[in-house]
Simulated scan of single mutants.
Amino acid sequence: MKTAWVTGATGFWGRNVVMSLLRLDWRVVALTRSPPEDLIVWARSQNKELVWQHCDLRLLQLPELETPSALFHCAAVFDTLETMMQVNVIAPIQLIESVLPQMQAAGEGRIGIFLGQNGRIGLPNLGHFSATQGAMWTWAESQSRTLAPLGNVSLSLVFPPRAPSDLQGKLAEKLTKPPKLSTRPTADDLVKNVLLGHRCVGRRPVLAGISTLLW
C-alpha cells in the first residue's frame, strides 16, 4: 500500500483529496494542525487507513515519517502577508524539498500543488494573496520543468474549479462581484491525473484568467 501526504486535510480540497486517495486504496497521512475527526471515522468505517500527523505550516516542523510516494499540498490561508507567505509559499516549498531527494532515490514520486486560478492576476483588494499564489505558481512551474526529464518523479500544478470553501468565501468578500462556484466539485479526476504524472491538472489557467478579466 502506497502512502500519500496531504496538507490542508481539514479544508475543502484537502478533504476531497483525502477521500479520493482512500477510495483508490492509498494510505493517507493528513498533515494538519488539528485532527480531521470525521474523515478518520469515515476511513475506519470503510476499512481504509488514514493517519493524522500534527503539522502547523505557520511554524513548520517537518514530520519524521517514511517518505511518501505522493504529496498533495492543498493548504492555503487568507491572512496577513507574513502568514500567507509562510503558509502559502515558504513552508510548502520546504516540505516538498524535504521529500524530493528521497523520492528521486526511490525512483518514484508524485507531487500535486493546488493553486488559485488567478494567482498571477492582480485583482482589486487581493494583492497580497495574489503575490503568494503567483510566487508558488512560478516556483512550481520551475520545479515541474526541472523534474520532467529526470525520471519518475513529477510535480503537477493543480487548478481546481472554484468551490464553496472557507478560503473562497474570504476571497469573495474582497471582490465586487461574487465568483461562480461549482456546485458539486470532486477531486477524483484531479487526483488521478496527478498520480498519472500530468504536469498541469484541472482548468487551464489561461482560460481561467481570461474568464476572470471578462467577468
Rank of each mutant, 00 (worst) to 15 (best):
R199Y: 08
H198F: 13
L157D: 09
T186I: 09
Q143W: 15
R199G: 12
P185A: 01
D188I: 03
P179V: 01
H198P: 00
A172G: 10
A187F: 15
L190F: 12
T146L: 11
S154Y: 04
L190D: 02
G151Y: 06
P161G: 08
A187Y: 12
L157E: 05
L150D: 08
L147T: 05
P178C: 07
L195S: 08
S165A: 04
V194C: 10
E141I: 09
D166K: 08
N193A: 11
S156E: 01
L155V: 06
E173F: 05
Q143F: 13
V191M: 12
P178V: 13
G151F: 14
A163K: 02
T183R: 14
P160T: 07
V201S: 07
L147G: 07
S154W: 07
V153M: 07
V201H: 01
V191H: 08
P179C: 05
L195A: 06
P178Q: 15
V201W: 01
A140Q: 06
S144H: 03
S144R: 08
A163V: 03
R145G: 04
L190Q: 03
G197K: 01
E173R: 15
L167C: 05
P149V: 06
G169S: 07
L167G: 02
P179N: 04
L190R: 03
S142L: 14
V191E: 09
S156K: 00
C200H: 14
L167A: 04
E173S: 11
V201F: 10
L196Q: 14
V153A: 02
P149C: 11
N193M: 12
P161L: 08
T146M: 11
P164S: 03
L155E: 06
L171E: 03
S142W: 15
R199H: 13
E173Q: 11
K177L: 12
P179Y: 00
H198V: 14
P160C: 05
V201N: 00
G151L: 00
T176G: 09
T183K: 10
P149D: 09
P149M: 05
P185Y: 02
S144K: 01
V201D: 00
A140I: 13
G169A: 07
V158T: 04
K180M: 12
L181R: 12
T186G: 15
T183L: 15
H198C: 12
A163C: 06
A148H: 11
Q143Y: 09
K192P: 04
G197A: 00
A140S: 15
D188S: 03
A148S: 13
L155I: 11
G169T: 04
P160W: 02
